[in-house]
Amino acid sequence: MWRSIRKFFQFFVDKPIKKGAVLYDRYEVISVIGTGSYGIVYLCKDLKTNENRVVKQLRPSKRRIKKEIKLFENEISILRLLNHKSMPKLYDEFSNNGYFYYVMNYIEGENLEDQIFLNHKTFKETESLLLLARLLELVAYLHKNGMYHQDLRIPNILLKDKEPFLIDFGLSKQIVSVDPICSSSKELEMKQQDYYDLGDILLYLLYTTYSSNNKKVLPWTEELSLKKETVHLLKRLLRIQEPYSDISELSADLHAALLSKEK
């Protein structure tokens, strides 16, 4: 019941800003390009620079909830630390009449989820492993700088000229504890969550070339015909076998899986 009431409330309160509206006397709304559980994302024109920008708004239905505001502010703090060509760059943040916004660069690219499900793009085993390798480079950058994405999913990956871009850092975290034992344990937990998500993405990619006439649902180890090195990599990513605790170990197994495809 309460969920239905909340959805009803959000339907009327979370109406997107209309095309042509100008935010902060600077950002003219061109279109809505995405909606998430706590944000609405707009493509805007920066009237000062004449460049396209992305503006994310905290959903109006959440703007009075301290927990949601804190999540929004956390995302801004993460974006402020990022300095990578394949990740968003924070340009601005502002509030107006109790509504919260921040501004990023516009990354041209196609959403990986749409490419798979709408455009029917497929990835063979080697292509899947190569894309995983590129994603792992981005995750390595984050982990090296004490950041953990925690929401690595195909909707949060853009592809441009086969190069992946990571977006949506709404659930991302940093290590801030002064207790080294607690920090080390938490760090490993967050690392392994990112690794698990990478395994989930790899499985999605591998299934894009799969078609079955078998009515019985089988585990992926039986449905997919993969090199044993790729199976080993996936089992550890997905915690079926001992999970990875270090990115160098993961990279070594990924390299081995790629080499096996060349034989």
Rank of each mutant, 00 (worst) to 15 (best):
S245Q: 13
L129W: 01
H143A: 05
H232Q: 11
Y38F: 14
N50Y: 09
A21T: 13
E242D: 11
D168R: 08
V231Y: 00
D246T: 07
Y99L: 15
Y148N: 03
S183R: 12
Y204N: 14
E163D: 12
S4R: 13
S225F: 08
P180V: 01
Y141E: 13
E249Q: 08
R53K: 15
K144Y: 10
V29L: 07
I30E: 07
E163P: 02
K15L: 10
I17R: 00
E68K: 14
H84L: 10
Q193F: 05
E125L: 13
S172M: 09
V217P: 00
K216S: 10
I69E: 01
V217R: 13
I65H: 12
Y91P: 03
R63F: 06
Y99D: 15
F12I: 12
N50H: 13
P243V: 00
Y207I: 05
Q241W: 11
F117W: 09
D14K: 06
T230L: 07
L142G: 01
F12D: 03
L202N: 03
I247Y: 06
V22Q: 08
P155W: 00
K162D: 12
L218R: 13
S61V: 01
G39T: 13
K261V: 02
I167P: 01
Y244G: 02
K89R: 14
L58G: 04
I154N: 11
L198D: 10
W2Y: 12
K62D: 03
R134E: 15
R6F: 11
F100D: 02
F11A: 14
G36C: 05
N52E: 11
K191M: 09
V29R: 00
S128N: 01
S177T: 06
S95Y: 10
R59Y: 01
E127G: 04
I76G: 06
I247Q: 05
W220V: 05
L79M: 08
N111P: 00
I33F: 03
Q193M: 09
S260R: 00
V178S: 15
Y106P: 02
M87Q: 04
K235A: 11
T49V: 10
P243Y: 06
E249H: 05
R64H: 14
I175R: 10
E68L: 12
K160C: 09
L224V: 05
Y24I: 04
Q115C: 11
E229N: 04
R236V: 09
I154E: 10
K45I: 09
E127C: 06
Y38C: 07
L171V: 03
K160D: 08
F123K: 02
G34N: 03
I247K: 05
E223R: 14
R239H: 15
S184H: 11
Y210S: 02
L233A: 05
E28L: 15
I154G: 09
H143C: 06
G36N: 09
S86G: 06
K45H: 08
V178A: 10
K263T: 00
D197Y: 08
Y24F: 14
D114P: 01
E68P: 06
L79Y: 07
K173V: 02
K121E: 09
S185L: 14
L129R: 00
H255A: 15
L152V: 03
I175W: 04
K173Y: 07
R53H: 05
V54T: 05
K56P: 03
